[in-house]
């Protein structure tokens, strides 16, 4: 979720995080904890509280893509105790032996996790990971400019004529195609060429109505009305709405794409005990709420909602309908990635 992290980038916040880490870095008898996370994706308040509670000194490093993390951990000399990995990359990390077994169910606080997020497909025994933040990918609509019904992904993928030239899409083959596959009712990571042909036809027919493919600056484009309909993440849509009340995040009947970022302990961590303390720490509702308040994304710890900021408690972006179909996309095998690349290239030929 590269651009998600970029979208969230607020230098101020990162600087604050850094400052807090530095200020808190005085006389720590309890040792160190080295965290590696997406840029602007770690609550400074969370880290400060952890340091205060445990006396452990935290050092935070950031990255901008799963590929960067993969390359760094593969080089074997990273020296991190905690890393945050997207759900689709968890199986890669565990099968390549890049993360330690943590046996999460045995950790104190594991019972606080929402059963919905326990033992997920990407880590069936929770042997390697616990959930961090999660969100959904769908689209938002500027309801001042478009009054039609918005209950289906068809508004995005087969927009009515009045929306021609007002649609925005992510500029990422997997993000665009996984949502298209939800709309077409097929499982993610298609290797079936006939199915991919349907995806291609859908996107080619949509293309003339698309104003741009760009994963950055969506919050502003939707808030200013430069685009009327835009593929977007729920947390980002919430930030658009805070700028412009007319922006509405849509929960379509066909479903949405879900993503989850997970906390893992890289192989060879120098402070495994402190890493465990951190895992236990973030499974406490009042602590994980600090993280959600910072990123505006949901978490998996039951009871953290009561510590949410007021603006988040009733945010429609964070309260999906109970029957919403959420499709979690795994890391696609090479064959599927190649097919997506082909469709994407034809689309932009």
């Amino acid at each position: 979720m590269t651009s998600k992290a970029l979208n969230r980038t607020t230098l101020k916040r990162s600087a604050l995080a850094l400052a807090l880490t530095l200020v808190a870095g005085t006389a720590h008898a309890e040792g160190d904890l080295f965290i590696y996370n997406w840029t602007d994706y770690t609550s400074p308040e969370l880290i400060a509280k952890f340091e205060k509670d445990t006396g452990i000194k935290v050092t935070l490093d950031t990255y901008d893509s799963n590929e960067t993390l993969l390359a760094k951990l593969k080089s074997g000399s990273a020296g991190y105790d905690i890393a945050v990995v997207s759900s689709d990359f968890v199986p890669i990390f565990s099968s390549e032996g890049l993360v330690e077994k943590i046996d999460a169910p045995k950790l104190e606080g594991f019972s606080n996790l929402d059963p919905r997020w326990v033992k997920p497909v990407w880590d069936p025994e929770n042997a390697y990971s616990i959930p961090w933040n999660w969100g959904t990918t769908s689209y938002s609509v500027n309801t001042d400019a478009y009054k039609g019904p918005i209950d289906s992904l068809s508004v995005l993928f087969e927009p009515p004529p009045e929306l021609a030239g007002k649609v925005g899409m992510f500029n990422s083959p997997s993000e665009v195609m996984s949502l298209a596959q939800v709309y077409l009712g097929m499982p993610p990571c298609q290797t079936d060429t006939a199915n991919m042909k349907k995806v291609q036809d859908l996107l080619l027919a949509q293309a003339p109505a698309v104003k741009l493919y760009n994963s950055d600056g969506i919050i502003e484009r939707q808030a200013t009305g430069e685009t009327v309909v835009h593929q977007q993440w729920n947390g980002a849509a919430m930030r658009s709405r805070e700028l412009n009340k007319a922006v509405k995040y849509v929960y379509p009947k066909e479903g949405v794409v879900g993503w989850m970022d997970n906390v893992v302990v890289p192989t060879g961590a120098k402070n495994p005990d402190n890493a465990r303390k951190f895992l236990t720490f973030i499974m406490q509702p009042e602590n994980m709420a600090l993280q959600s308040n910072f990123t505006k994304y949901s978490n998996a710890v039951v009871g953290s909602e009561q510590f949410f900021e007021a603006s988040m408690k009733d945010a429609p972006e964070l309260s999906p309908p109970a029957d919403l179909k959420v499709v979690f996309t795994p890391a696609c095998p090479e064959e599927a990635t190649q097919l997506m690349d082909r469709v994407w290239t034809r689309l932009k030929k």
């Binding site: 590269t2 997997s174 293309a207 493919y213 932009k348």
Partner: peptide, 17 residues
């Protein structure tokens, strides 16, 4: 990003593709 250029094509191959 509506049409690919050589530069963006190469960029794409080294990242998501």
């Amino acid at each position: 990003g509506r049409k690919l250029m050589i530069g963006s094509l190469i960029h794409l191959q080294f990242t998501s593709s």
